Amino acid sequence: MQIFVKTLTGKTITLEVEPSDTIENVKAKIQDKEGIPPDQQRLIFAGKQLEDGRTLSDYNIQKESTSHLVLR
């Protein structure tokens, strides 16, 4: 499924993911596309910070959901 990640600069990154993917996996995909190390990434969805060990389905992130990327 596709999800979108919006950066603070207003850029939207499109990612191909599975509901069973962990947040860690998603951060690795963002690193592949954008070159941002996962330890600098914070992903926010529905006002919550997403934890590495959880999956997209844990957070009820469905296709075409948009989460926000904040850099630390």
Rank of each mutant, 00 (worst) to 15 (best):
E24G: 12
D21S: 08
L50N: 01
I36Y: 12
K48V: 14
F4P: 03
T14H: 07
E51Q: 10
K29C: 04
G35Q: 05
V26M: 05
F45P: 00
K48R: 11
I36W: 13
S20M: 11
L71R: 06
I61A: 02
P37K: 07
I13L: 10
S20A: 08
Q62I: 11
G47R: 04
T55V: 06
K48I: 14
V5P: 00
T12P: 03
A28P: 00
V17Q: 01
T7Y: 12
F45A: 03
H68K: 07
E16P: 04
I13G: 01
R72W: 15
I44W: 15
Q2C: 10
I44G: 03
Q2E: 09
T7V: 09
D39C: 13
I44Q: 06
T14Q: 09
E34C: 15
A46T: 05
P37V: 05
A46S: 09
E24R: 14
I61R: 01
E51Y: 07
H68P: 07
D39M: 09
S65P: 12
R72I: 15
Q41D: 01
T14R: 10
L8W: 15
Q2F: 13
I36H: 07
L8D: 11
K29Y: 07
Q62G: 15
Q49M: 13
K63P: 15
D39I: 09
V70N: 05
D58C: 03
N25W: 10
E34Q: 07
S67G: 15
E34L: 15
I61S: 02
Q41R: 02
L56H: 00
Q49A: 11
I23E: 00
E24Y: 15
Q49W: 14
K33M: 12
V5D: 01
K11W: 08
G35S: 05
Q41N: 03
I30A: 01
Q62S: 14
R72T: 14
E24W: 15
G35T: 03
L43R: 00
N60W: 04
T22Q: 04
S67Y: 13
I61M: 07
N25R: 14
K11A: 08
K33S: 11
N60Y: 06
N60K: 08
R72P: 09
I61N: 02
I13T: 02
A28V: 12
I30T: 01
K29T: 03
M1A: 03
K48S: 08
L8H: 14
E18A: 13
L15R: 00
P37D: 06
Q2S: 10
D52M: 05
V26L: 10
Q49V: 15
R72Q: 14
M1D: 02
I61C: 02
R72A: 13
L50A: 03
P38L: 13
K48N: 09
L8V: 12
N25I: 14
L15E: 00
Q31D: 05
Q40S: 08
I13W: 05
P38K: 15
T22W: 05
R72Y: 15
G47V: 02
V5G: 01
D39G: 11
K6P: 01
T12V: 14
Q49T: 15
D58R: 02
I30K: 00
I23H: 01
P38V: 15
S65K: 07
D21R: 01
K29E: 02
E64S: 11
R54Q: 08
K48E: 12
N25F: 12
T7W: 10
P38F: 12
E51G: 04
L71I: 12
T12A: 05
P38W: 11
F45L: 07
I61V: 07
A28R: 15
K29H: 04
S20Y: 11
L56N: 00
R72H: 13
K33A: 12
K27P: 00
A46F: 09
V5A: 02
K33C: 09
E18N: 13
R54V: 05
K11P: 04
V26I: 12
T12E: 06
K63L: 10
S67F: 15
S67C: 15
Y59G: 01
V70K: 06
P19R: 06
Q31M: 13
L8Q: 13
D58Y: 15
Q40G: 05
K63S: 14
T55A: 06
A46K: 14
V26S: 00
Q41E: 01
I30Q: 00
E18W: 13
A46E: 15
D52C: 06
T12M: 13
V70G: 04
A28S: 11
Y59H: 03
P19Y: 07
K29S: 03
P37H: 11
K11Q: 08
H68R: 08
I23S: 01
P38D: 04
E34N: 08
I23C: 01
L15T: 01
E24Q: 12
Y59M: 03
G53D: 11
K63F: 10
Q2W: 12
S67N: 10
K11G: 07
L71M: 08
Q31P: 01
F4E: 06
E24K: 12
N25S: 15
K11F: 08
I30N: 00
T14D: 04
K33Y: 08
Q62T: 15
H68M: 13
I30R: 00
L71K: 05
T66V: 13
G47S: 04
I30Y: 02
D32H: 11
S57P: 02
